[in-house]
Nucleic acid binder design. Structure first.
Length: 500
RNA sequence: GCCGAUGUAGCUCAGUUGGUCAGAGCAGCUGAUUUGUAAUCAGCAGGUCGGGGGUUCGAAUCCCUCCAUCGGCUCCA
């Protein structure tokens, strides 16, 4: 007999080799039917695996994040299976679960495409496969064996995947006639999947690398009940009604014109009124927090951005220089306010006793964004930042940083942004050539940010490799009505710009 | 920029075996009505069917190309 401990610390005894499903059945038949995956001593695994020794167990159903994850991951395998049936000759890359649903990346043979019109038949095939109630069979394999298997098949994608894995950790899952390299866990059987929707198809670069081949990414979502799918689709529909692009049009807040140019919003009278109220509110808050308004021009000499380091980094991907008719001068449309504010600071000598000095500006900037990246008012080519630069002594850094966090939180609260996440973006220490500035300064700046967020008790995530090229940052992200996450506020420590 | 899709009156949309297919509702205008909260009645006006090129006796409808938009990828100073 083995002892199984439940999340409520309740302990029950079972026969050795019992499965989580049988354990669930000892609680209720319904739970036995609904259990998708389990956590055994903190490790996710299949509900169908035999348990041989004492353990702490958690049972996950579709109502749990872990359960949804396994459910959708299994659905991705079924999607891949359906694709193999319908499109012979495809090669498969990966197919993970995502926040809402799953996708699979597929390399289609030359000339073959999947488009919206094909979704129905893919869904039908997937449902058919789900109804077969195939069990997911787990199998461990040595790295050598696995590599040989896929090398023989000529599947360079799976060979690539396996090459990056440690021997002894390689497992495969088979359902019906389909086998895939996979860590798991998976559903007990495919029959739990009752409703499937193929949502969209898109191109996705292999390994997220623009220089690599583009694969076909097929998105889908699935549910254990038809009703859940209907509710989800209704939710999507409702969310679309709240899309700011739709509201902006209907309320006559802003518009775009092909003649003016893509990503260049035109603020209509009502929108301008709204924007003015927002700006007035922000200006009032800035004043309270000790910021002094400044105003800078919309263009600056190319040399300014060469000095700041921005030109080296973004010059090629910016609107190209504006040339004067006679003197051959080169100006850039202002892509950021930072260098301008630095020049304001430099306009006269400052004593350390004058610090901190806080400049604020509603600075309109222009950035060349790739045309596929534009999105309503949230990603544009011309926009106005409520931007500020604080010049302070090293011993004032932490306090100033905290004050900026305060102002951001105050504004979010006032504007009713309740659901935001916070992210500390640090540099990727493996790839230091991407960044400017010394190790020492980077170290100081990163430390200052982490101390500040700790002091404020903010719940944050650390992302390495997401820092700006000149310094680490703290980003505040909010979700829009249709569930997309956008960076709204950002606080950055920059030791490099003042020196330059 | 890349993959897929879409682009018909101000708005929402109908119109795909190419041949009275240039339409509807709402909005607008004119007139009537005066009735308590979006949608009374009648009439009128409004479109290079995204732009350009091609195939055809004939194209909104087929082909090419460009532009924009949408869903993703990449990017995001």
């Amino acid at each position: 007999m083995i002892k199984i401990t439940f999340p409520d610390k309740n302990v029950k005894e079972f026969e050795e080799g019992i499965t989580a499903i049988d354990i669930a059945r000892s609680i209720s038949n319904r739970l036995a039917k609904e259990v998708i995956a389990i956590s055994l001593n903190g490790e996710l695994q299949d509900a169908t695996r035999a348990i041989e020794s004492d353990a702490e167990i958690k049972l996950f159903t579709f109502n749990d994040e872990e359960g949804k994850h396994a459910f959708w991951h299994s659905s991705a395998h079924i999607m891949a299976q359906a694709i193999e049936h319908l499109y012979p000759g495809v090669k498969l890359w990966v197919g993970p679960a995502i926040e809402n649903g799953f996708y699979y990346d597929i390399d289609l043979p030359e000339g073959m495409v999947i488009s919206d019109n094909d979704f129905k038949k893919i869904e039908a095939e997937m449902l058919e496969l789900a109804r077969q109630k195939n069990v997911f069979i787990r199998k461990e394999m040595s790295k050598k064996e696995a590599l040989e298997h896929y090398s023989q098949k000529g599947d360079e994608y799976k060979v690539d995947l396996i090459s990056g894995l440690d021997d002894g950790s390689i497992t495969f899952y088979t359902q019906g006639d389909f086998t895939d390299l996979c860590r798991g866990p998976h559903l007990p059987n495919t029959g739990l999947i009752k409703a499937i929707k193929v949502l969209s198809v898109a191109g996705a670069y292999w390994k997220g690398d623009e220089t690599q081949k583009q694969l076909t990414r097929l998105y889908g979502i699935s549910f254990p009940k038809q009703k859940y799918l209907e509710e989800y689709l209704l939710m999507l529909k409702e969310a679309k009604k709240r899309d700011h692009r739709k509201i902006g049009k209907e309320l006559e807040l802003f518009t775009f014109s092909q003649k003016v140019g893509m990503g260049l919003p035109l603020w209509l009278p009502k929108g301008a009124q709204l924007r003015e109220r927002l700006e007035n509110f922000l200006k009032k808050v800035q004043k309270q927090y000790g910021y002094e308004p400044v105003i800078t021009p919309h263009i600056g000499q190319k040399e300014l951005y060469v000095t700041s380091g921005h030109y080296a980094k973004y010059g090629k991907d910016s609107f190209q220089p504006i040339n004067t008719p006679a003197e051959g001068e080169e100006f850039l449309l202002k892509p950021m306010n930072c260098p301008h504010h630095c020049e304001i600071y430099r306009s006269k000598p400052h004593s350390y006793k004058d610090l901190p000095i806080r400049y604020a500006e509603f600075g309109t900037v222009y950035r060349y964004e790739q045309h596929g990246e534009l999105h309503g008012l949230t990603r544009v080519r011309g926009f106005t930042q409520d931007d500020a630069h604080i010049f302070c002594r090293p011993d004032q850094l932490k306090e100033e940083f905290i004050k900026v966090i305060d102002i951001v939180l105050y504004i979010f609260k006032t504007l009713d942004f309740k659901n935001f996440t916070t992210q500390v973006s640090l540099r990727d220490k493996e790839n230091t050539e991407k960044y400017i500035g010394t190790d020492e300064n980077w170290g100081k700046a990163e430390k200052a940010i982490l101390e500040a967020v700790e002091t404020k008790g903010i719940d944050y995530k650390v992302k390495t490799g997401e820092a700006a090229f000149y310094g680490p940052k703290l980003d505040f992200m909010v979700k829009d009505a249709i569930g997309r996450e956008w960076q709204l506020g950002t606080i950055q420590v920059d030791y490099n710009l003042p020196e330059r």
